[in-house]
Design a binder for these strands. Structure first.
Lengths: 232, 232
DNA sequence: ATTGATTTAAATCTAAAGATTTAGAGAATC
DNA sequence: GATTCTCTAAATCTTTAGATTTAAATCAAT
């Protein structure tokens, strides 16, 4: 599991100096990785990433000065392939979700056993994404809740269902920012016909103008609906 | 782990009759759960769910007749609180992602050890979401790839960055479907001023009308941007 | 102190959007 | 065969929307 061509280089960022020392010693004693730097400042950490280009960063995300999540995003923007494991005191689902969303390859609680942290480091350095099962469970619940609302609002009464296929085509072109002339050209019909369709769409969606129609469509899964029809 | 007030009721759906029998025996021998029904047809499975209202459904998602994912969605729509574990022969990231997205509480490969399946059933019946770590790794890679594109296009050149705060407020109201008059009223400024702002927004976003402006905003993380400022 | 950016505002004009009515042709339903 | 639905189209009219120019007040920064 833990064979590397060269010793993997690790950078530690944690505003708690005690915890920082503890993790550093843990890595030095229990693994063959090199701790190339430690810092209690997120901003300094970003500079050290640029300087040392470590393979892995352990990032505390509960820091007062700068948000650790923001720091992760900035490191990701550098596109150095730096792998990041978020360290946190909280198993808050929203935090976990946001960390993973912006590209963290792992998320470990500070209260977890040292072996858990080392295992996570090993896995991530081996190119995997690792979340302890207790946390991945949290993540998935949050994930499903997030996507549930979409399908829930879609299951109620979706005014989009009343549209005819032609009206769907017109609305699709509306959601791409086309005006009457462009829609007429693309559908090979007259501009007045397009106006008729658009007005009917407004009636059915109970809106007053194209912007509202487009917003309704986007907020009620129109794109998914159209793509589903195309792929079916 | 495996204490229930009443014996949990399980329904098996798998077009492979042999596999179906095998899983049924496995559950009968190794667990205390009741297999209340088995079927090789997805449509029949949905009917059986309505009839028996099982606690858990094991759903094969690689069936010829009907797509297992679609069947999962239909069961979810019934809102009976039925927990579903997807069974599949493939560890395809897209399949895993889609299954979890529509509400599957687990995803287990047919090639996995029996113990793995039983563990997944236990966990899910205990209210958890369970993905074997090999598969959750796949899931997360897919998840991050999906969200990466968003932040990537955001990191390039985001024309939204050139907007002034007032212009952001106006655009925010545009993305809610307001016309000039409504925006003027909400910002306590004249309609002509709003027009000026809107025209400046068009220039900066390089678009021709409000619909395109709204679409640009939504496709480039405008909502997130505004909310971030508010919460900061 | 002056420059530059932002916010405000008005006037004017053209173009586009939206509302409403009417209507014919074809397909599907009953 | 009659009816309903969909797609097509035009005419007319009113209302927004959008382009362009000009300009005053405010404010931050050099």
């Amino acid at each position: 599991m833990r064979e590397f061509k060269r010793k993997a280089r690790v950078l530690l960022i944690d505003d708690n100096a005690d915890h920082l020392r503890g993790v550093k010693e843990l890595i030095n004693i229990e693994t063959s990785y090199d701790v190339v730097g430690t810092t209690t400042s997120a901003n300094m950490g970003i500079n050290l990433v640029k300087k040392y280009q470590p393979d892995l960063v352990l990032m505390d995300i509960n820091m007062p000065e700068k948000d650790g999540l923001q720091a992760i995003q900035e490191i990701e923007k550098l596109e150095l392939g730096t792998k990041i494991i978020a360290l946190s005191g909280y198993d808050d689902a929203d935090l976990i979700f946001r960390a993973m969303k912006i590209g963290a390859k792992g998320y470990v609680l500070k209260t977890m056993a040292s072996a858990q942290l080392i295992y996570a480091i090993d896995e991530v350095l081996n190119g995997k994404v690792y979340l302890p099962s207790a946390l991945s469970s949290r993540f998935f619940e949050y994930f499903q809740r997030t996507f549930k609302e979409e399908s829930a609002s879609r299951s109620e009464e979706n005014l989009l269902d009343y549209l005819t296929t032609r009206e769907e085509e017109v609305l699709d072109l509306l959601t791409q920012g086309n005006n009457y002339k462009a829609i007429a050209a693309k559908l090979f019909i007259s501009e007045t016909t397009v106006k008729t369709h658009v007005n009917n769409i407004f009636q059915k969606l109970q809106v007053n103008d194209r912007t509202q129609a487009v917003l309704y469509a986007l907020n009620n899964g129109f794109a998914n609906k159209v793509r589903a029809k195309i792929s079916a």
